[in-house]
Design a protein around this nucleic acid. Sequence first.
DNA 1: ATTAGCACTCTAACAGTGAGAGTGCTAAAG
DNA 2: CTTTAGCACTCTCACTGTTAGAGTGCTAAT
Lengths: 349, 349
Amino acid sequence: MSSDMLDGRSKDILYAVVESYISTPEPVGSRFITKKYPFGFSSATIRNIMADLEDLGFLIQPHTSAGRVPTDKGYRFFVDALLHKERDSGQQEVPREFAKQFTHKLERIKTNMNAMFSEVTNTLSMMSNYVGVAMPPKSEKSTLKRLDLMKYKGSSVVAILLTDEGIIKNRVLNVHADLAQEDLTRIAEYLNAEYAGSTLDEIKSSLIKRMKHEKALWDKLIAKAMEICEQALSFGEDDIFVSNLYDVMDLPDFSNIARIKELSRAIKDKHMIVSLLDDFIEADGVNVVIGDENPIEDLRRLSVVSSTYKEGDRPMGVIALIGPTRMDYAKAIFMVDAVAKCVSRTFES
Amino acid sequence: MSSDMLDGRSKDILYAVVESYISTPEPVGSRFITKKYPFGFSSATIRNIMADLEDLGFLIQPHTSAGRVPTDKGYRFFVDALLHKERDSGQQEVPREFAKQFTHKLERIKTNMNAMFSEVTNTLSMMSNYVGVAMPPKSEKSTLKRLDLMKYKGSSVVAILLTDEGIIKNRVLNVHADLAQEDLTRIAEYLNAEYAGSTLDEIKSSLIKRMKHEKALWDKLIAKAMEICEQALSFGEDDIFVSNLYDVMDLPDFSNIARIKELSRAIKDKHMIVSLLDDFIEADGVNVVIGDENPIEDLRRLSVVSSTYKEGDRPMGVIALIGPTRMDYAKAIFMVDAVAKCVSRTFES
DNA sequence: ATTAGCACTCTAACAGTGAGAGTGCTAAAG
DNA sequence: CTTTAGCACTCTCACTGTTAGAGTGCTAAT
C-alpha cells in the first residue's frame, strides 16, 4: 500500500482534503485548509505538501490555479483510514432508534420478499441519496423444504419450490405428457422423500449423476420425476433489487443528464451488478470498491459500498449502495452495515 | 369540443404547427410554415391565423418574437385528428415483422410473468424513448384453478394460488395453530372442491357471507380452512412494471435534471399509476391523456398513452407509455397498440 | 380577404474585461 | 534544513455590451 510512504503530516492533510471535498464539492486550496483545520502550518507549507501528494497520485487539480481534488487513490486512502478508525470507536448511538424502527417494519413485511427488498433499497436510497441495491438469497444455496406440482394447461405443470429460507419459486414446465394430478402428486411425494433437506445445488448434481447412471430407468414415473425436477431447478436469471434514481438526482455530482445517464446505464444491466456483488458475498464486514478499482467498465466512475446479511453465520445475500466516487463513505458504510444487520435479524426470527 | 369552431384552414395550420413542433422542439414561426407546408398563404396570413389560434388557447408563445408552441389543448386537437385519421387508413405495414418477432419472444418467456412484463416495458421504452408501463392482470378478477398449502416454519403456512391466466401468487400466512401437512392438504382439497372455477372476488364475498352465517362452525377444520382462505386472498398492493429511465434521458425534453426528476417523481408512486390506469382498463382501443387533463398532480406536465390487453374479449391489464406532452403521439399510439396486441396474443395460446 | 413592408422586440451567441482564487517559486527567517 | 512571506503568474467565472437573426404585430396597399 503506497500510502505507507506518507508521513503523519501528509496523511493528516490528505485526510482533511478528502473530507472537505466530500462535504463540499469544491476543489480545496491550501489557504482553505489552514483556515478550517488548525494544523499550525502556513498555507505555503500546506502547498508544498499538497504538491507532493499530487506527485504521488493522491490528488489532482482540475486546472492550474484551482484547488485540489482527490483521485480514486486518494479516496482509497481515506476509506482505509476510515475503516481503521471505525474499528476503534463505535460511532453508533443516534441511529439505534432507526434500526429498531426499521427492523420492525421489515418484520411486518418479511412474508413478501419482493416488498421487503423494495423497502430495503428504497429506504437505503432515501436516507443516503445513493442508489440502494439488494441481492436476495441465492436459491441454489438454499435447502429444499418442499416441492409441489400442480397441473396447469395441457401438458404444462407448475412447480413450486419452498426452501428453508422462505424463498418461494414457481415455474411453469412442459412435461410433454398428459399426466393426471394424482401422478403429479405422487411424483412430488417421491421427490420430496428423496431430496427434502438437500440444497438445490446438491440436488442438481445428484440428479445429473443418477440420470446418467441408470440410463434406462425402469420406472417410467420416476424417469418423469427426474425430468421434471431438473426443469424445476433451472431458474432464470437472478433478480436483484435496485432503488429508483429519484433521490440520487439531488446530488450535485449528478446535476447533468450525462452523468445521470451514465449511472442509469451502469445499473441497467442487472447481471453485471449481480456478478460484482457475488464476489463480496463471502467477504466479511463492509466492502468498498472505488471508481477505477471496479472490474466493470460502466462503474469506473462510481463507488460501491456493500455488506452481506446472514442467517446465523451463513452469508445469504448482499446489500449495497452505489454512488459517485465523491461519496460520503462514512455515512454509506454506516448505513449499509446497519441495514444489513437489520435484514439479518429479520431472517433469524 | 371547442376545436369545432375552427374552420378548415385553421385546423390545417394548427395541425402543421403541432406536427412540426413534435418533430423538432423549436417554436414554429409563420415563415417556417410557409416554407415547409405549401398551403399557398403568405406568412402574414399564417401569422393572423396563428394569432387567432393563440387567442383560442391552442398555441402559446414562449416570449414575444418567438414562434408558437402548442398548449395541451393544441395537442388534444392534434391527437383527436390523429385518431380519426388512424381509423381510416391503417398505417401498419413495416412493423409487422416486429410484431411477429416480439410475439415470439414473449411466447418464450411467458412462463415467467415478471420477466415477460419487464421485457414488455423495456422494449416499449427502448423503441419509443418514453417510459414503458405495464399493469399485470388483476388477480381478483381471475378464476381459481387450484390452491395449495404447504407447511412452513412453526405455525406459518405457505399458500399458493394458481389461476386460469397463469398467475401464480404465494403468500406466507400465520394460522395460529400447529397443523400437520396432512391437515393442510385436506383443507386445500376441501377448498379446491368448493371454490375452483370461481373468481377470487366471488370467493371472497362468498367466504364472508358464509363465515357470518354459520357463526359457530361445527367442523374445526373447515373453520380453519375458511380462515386460511381469507388470508390467502388478501393480497398486498398490486405491483406494476415500469421501465427504467435510460432511454428517456435521450429526449431533449428531459435534458435537465429538474425535468427528469419530475418524471421520476411521477412514476415513483406506483399506486398512483395503478389508480390512473385502472380507469382505462374498460376503455376500448388506445387512450390518450394529455398534460392538464391528468387527474394526478405529478403527471400534469406529462402525457399517458394506454391500451388494454385482453384474453378473448375480457380486458386483463393495461400497457402504457408515459412521455412529455410534446410526444410523438403517432408513434406512441402505434407502439402501445401493437404491443398490447402482442401481449393479448400471448395470453390466448 | 390577403399580403407586402416595416418598425419593434426579444434571444442567443460572442468577445472583452476584471476580480478572485490558487498556485509555484524564490529568498529570507527560524 | 525546514518553514514561511511575498510575489508574479495562470486560469476560471461572472458580467457587460454588442450584434445578428428570427419572429411578431400593425398598417397600408392590393
